[in-house]
Every structure is written in C-alpha cells, then in structure tokens.
Simulated scan of single mutants.
Amino acid sequence: MNSALRLLTVLGGSILLTVAAGWAVDLLLRRADARHPETPLWNLLRRCRRALQIVLLAALLKGAYPQTAWRPLRENEAAVGRVLSLALIGAGAWLIVGMASALVESGYARYATGTRDPARVRRVRTQVTLIMRVVTAVVAMVAAAAMLLTFPSFRALGTSLLASAGIIGIVAGVAAQSTLGNLFAGFQIAFGDMVRIGDTVVVAGEWGVVEDITLTFLAVRTWDERRITMPVSYFTTRPFENWSRGGVQMTGTVFLHCDHSAPVDLMRDKVHEILHHCREWDGRGWDVAVTETTPSTIVVRAIVTAKDADDLWTVRCAVREQLIAWLAEKHPDALPRLVLASAPEAGGAPLDGKTRHPR
C-alpha cells in the first residue's frame, strides 16, 4: 500500500508540476507577445508548449520512479527507464525543431514586412524552407541515433560499424549518387537564386508557378491546377525559362490575321480603349503594328504590358476577344475571308482554258 501511494504521489506530482510549468511558460509568452507585437516570435513559441510538457514529464518520471519502490517497476526497471529515455529524446527533438522553426519563421516574417522587393522575399522564403528541412532532418537523424544507442545490442554493433565505415560510405555514395546530386542541387538552387518559390517558370513545355522546393524535388503548379514534380537536379543541368527573374513585370503580344482592307488606325484606337478599361493592364506601354503580310491576309500585332504573368495572360485574352468582337460588329470586311467567286476571264480567255471564237 505504501509503494502504491508513493507511485500515485510521484505520478500526480509530476503531472501537476508539468501542467503548472506549461501554464506558467504560456502565460509569460502571452505577456511577451502583448508587449512586443512587432515580432511574432513569442506567439510562435507557444506552439512548443506540448513538447516542453512532455520533456518535463519524462524527465521528472525518469528521476523519480526509482523512489516508488513498487515491485513491478523494480522488476522492469531497465525497460521503464528505456521507455522514458526514448520519450525524453523524442520530445526533446520535437522541442528543438519547434523552437528553431519559430525563430526562423519570426525572422522571415520581419524581413518580409520590412522588404518591398517581392523577388527578395521569395528568395528568402525558399532559403528558409530548405534550411528548416535540413535542420529537421539533422535533428531527426541525431534523435534516431540517440534512441538506438539506448539499446545495448546497438552499442556493440556501433563499434563494428565504425570499423567498416569507410567501405560502407563508398558503397552508400555510389548507391545514393542520384539522391546526393539532388541534395546538393537543392542547396545550389536555394543559395544560387536560380529559382524561388512563387516564380513563374516554363519547364518541359509547361507554364506554371513554383509551389514547393524540397531537398530532392521541386513542384510546379500549372495554370490548370496540375502539379509537375521534377528532381531539383533538372534545374541545374538543363535550361528553363524563369519569367520572374529580374522583375515580375512582363510584355506580351496578341496576333490577329486580318484582311488587307482592315482599318489599322481604328484598330489601334480600339486597343487603346480596351486597355484603359482593363484593370490588369499596368499602363507601362502598348503598341499596334502590321508585322507581316501574305497574299490573303495581314498580321496585326498588339503589344501589351502587365505587372506579372497572370495579369499579362488576362490582358492578352481581353484584347484578343474584344478586338475580334469589335471587328465582327463594326468592320466585318476586315476579318479574313475565303474568296469563292470565279476569277474574271483574262484577255478573253474562258475559265476552262479553251479558246472561244466569236461567231
């Protein structure tokens, strides 16, 4: 009965201390967040409350459970201690990742608020994303190794593994050559500013926006909501179009095939009117000119500008649709036509090529 009472006291006391410590830390973080609203760090750190409580509970139980003198615990002391150690290591890794994530996200948020250049913000966002994934992977590997070392059999195995580490490293390097190449390519993309999250790119003939970048692959969201997943090494070994590099402003063209009698001056005025009523046009520039002629048509090119690729697509579609509708309504003869009428006789020769003599 005495040992059972000790067990309840240890469990209850540990749980109460854990809850009280978590409540106190959360209160301090809320007050710090209220005093410093310019930084989201304190509010982000509140997400680490659960991990902190698990760490505290596991540490308290690991230090206090031998004092309970409860027979089942004494008989399984090694197993109980190992379980608490595993919980402590896992929760500690969770806490470290959460704190690192809060620090990185807070720094990125402050940088994004104080920077007006969208390209720099996307660059920092890409770097922050990859850095956090590297930190998470490293912490997870260290935690997994620490958990394995709690088992005596793995400790003995570690000595023999270290002796053959050179051979294993060579074999692993050859086997994981593609994976390691993608890993280093991910770092090259992140810190070489080749492509960033949010950039508009054209890869493998597909137009889309970079949605996610990991250490091994890159996801591009196309205009029709498809996702193209490509290894990051693709972007370091092959050419691709990055429409967002050097600024997101873009210039596009609209081509129309018209009849030779098309009123180009009136079309120029109509394009100007369409652009002034189009919200996506940024006002930087426009032009209308005849760029090509064929025996049956002329090619009229309209140049328009927009602040980014999405708006440019909208402006081009609006100009194309409204200009064709205006021509069809006001100047139908300006649209291309198929001439089906018979050609007049040349020099008195009939259409069938036979000579006809007057009677």
Rank of each mutant, 00 (worst) to 15 (best):
V299C: 12
P336I: 07
M267L: 15
R74Q: 15
W42E: 02
A143K: 08
W243F: 10
R123H: 10
G158S: 15
R316F: 04
G92Y: 06
H272T: 14
G81E: 14
G63W: 14
R284I: 07
R47S: 13
L52R: 07
L16R: 07
L57C: 08
A21Y: 06
L52E: 06
S244I: 00
A175E: 05
L162T: 10
L338H: 10
V209Y: 01
V128E: 09
T216K: 03
S342K: 11
T293R: 14
L16P: 04
R30K: 05
L45F: 12
L215Q: 05
V202Y: 00
G169C: 11
A289Q: 14
L340V: 11
T126Q: 03
T115H: 12
Y108Q: 12
E329N: 12
T237R: 09
I54T: 14
A91Y: 07
S296F: 08
R82P: 03
L73H: 09
R196H: 09
I96P: 01
V134M: 11
R71L: 15
V203Q: 02
A4H: 13
R356N: 05
P344R: 09
P350S: 08
E75A: 15
A102C: 09
L327M: 13
M230P: 00
S85V: 12
V55T: 12
M194S: 08
L256Y: 03
M99G: 11
A100C: 12
L45W: 06
P295E: 12
W243N: 02
L148S: 11
T115A: 09
R116D: 13
R46L: 06
A185V: 03
A102T: 06
T291P: 06
D224V: 09
A204P: 00
A79C: 04
L7T: 15
R31G: 07
G283T: 03
R30S: 09
S342I: 03
I167W: 13
G107N: 07
A79H: 11
S342H: 09
R49L: 08
